[in-house]
């Protein structure tokens, strides 16, 4: 492979949530250790020792426990955090059990009050009184960031917060330009890079152009893999959009197509993409962590 540039290599959290997009049977068959935050934190730290720069995770009770364990065991390792909010599965489940979207809103308000985060509460109260969606979004973001910081420690290097794909897809399909502007402005004021997770990369890039948003100011996490898995509308379309992107701001996810591809196949394909900023890969065993990050790092050194 001819490509030589500094890549952001992140360990992802899908295996820790018991998610496999290849087969649910496969996720159920994984070792019970994967439910243990100590075990997961060890996998993250092993990944860091073998070439990863950081950890990309959806903010949930599971990953917050892992962050706490990492904080205790990290030593002097440097680690960047890339958070994704909200953790969709948790919220969908909450909505299911609490009677839909109205019930979900009440549950979130309750969690916000119990968190005791004064800034988030004040912003949220203002948003609720005036039905101001921007204040509600900021309040929610402050709440999530405070959860991360209280678990990872104040010195943790939170590089970016991504909007979960469900929110990104909703915003781009329903023309919620205000949400992107508001999120980008808010992230900038607190010194983190705004990010968008999407499975509709081409659609997103077209929207950024339409909305006059500079893609260089944001990060995008989106699937790139040889199988074209979850690449909408097509692998070729996504590759063309990536090649046209003005600067490397794309973090490739699903690079193994959920375990469908071998690591070497995945790396060979990624090597054909000249405009990636980084790669995120989930690991579920120690030997995976060693092998995966050593091989990818070696390729990009």
């Amino acid at each position: 492979m001819s490509q030589k540039k500094e890549m952001v290599l992140l360990v992802g959290d899908n295996p820790f949530h018991g998610i496999s997009h290849l087969s649910q049977q496969r996720s159920r068959a994984r070792s019970e250790n994967i439910n243990d935050p100590q075990y997961c934190s060890k996998l993250v730290l092993t990944s860091l020792d073998n070439g990863a720069n950081g950890f990309m995770f959806s903010v949930s009770e599971t990953t917050l426990s892992i962050l706490k364990a990492i904080r205790r065991n990290r030593g002097n390792r440097n680690m960047e955090l890339y958070a994704i909010v909200p953790y969709a599965y948790e919220y969908v489940r909450m909505a299911t059990q609490s009677g839909g979207i109205s019930g979900l809103a009440k549950q979130i308000a309750k969690k916000l009050v119990l968190s005791g985060n004064i800034k988030a509460l004040a912003t949220g109260f203002k948003g609720l009184i005036s039905m101001d969606p921007e204040s509600l979004l900021k309040s929610y973001m402050l709440y999530e960031i405070s959860r991360i910081r209280s678990s990872a420690g104040k010195s943790a290097n939170l590089r970016s917060v991504f909007l979960h794909e469900i929110i990104t897809e909703m915003a781009i399909s329903l023309n919620m330009h205000w949400l992107f502007d508001c999120f980008i402005d808010f992230a900038s004021t607190i010194g983190i890079t705004p990010g968008f997770e999407t499975r509709n990369f081409v659609f997103l890039m077209n929207k950024l152009t339409e909305w006059n948003i500079d893609p260089r100011k944001v990060l995008i996490a989106t699937p790139f893999n040889k199988a074209g898995f979850q690449m909408s509308p097509s692998r070729e379309g996504c590759e063309r959009a990536l090649a046209k992107a003005p600067e490397s701001n794309v973090i490739a996810m699903s690079v193994l197509a959920a375990g469908y591809l071998k690591l070497t196949e995945a790396i060979d394909y990624l090597g054909t993409l000249s405009n990636l900023k980084g790669i995120v890969v989930g690991v579920s065993r120690e030997n995976h962590a060693h092998e995966t990050f050593q091989q990818i790092r070696k390729t990009y050194e």
């Binding site: 897809e169 499975r199 074209g228 690449m231």
Partner: peptide
């Protein structure tokens, strides 16, 4: 056959 083998791309994935 996995999904991957069966042509599973769509215009808008949600």
């Amino acid at each position: 056959w996995y999904r991957h083998d069966l042509g599973d791309n769509v215009e808008f994935l949600l």
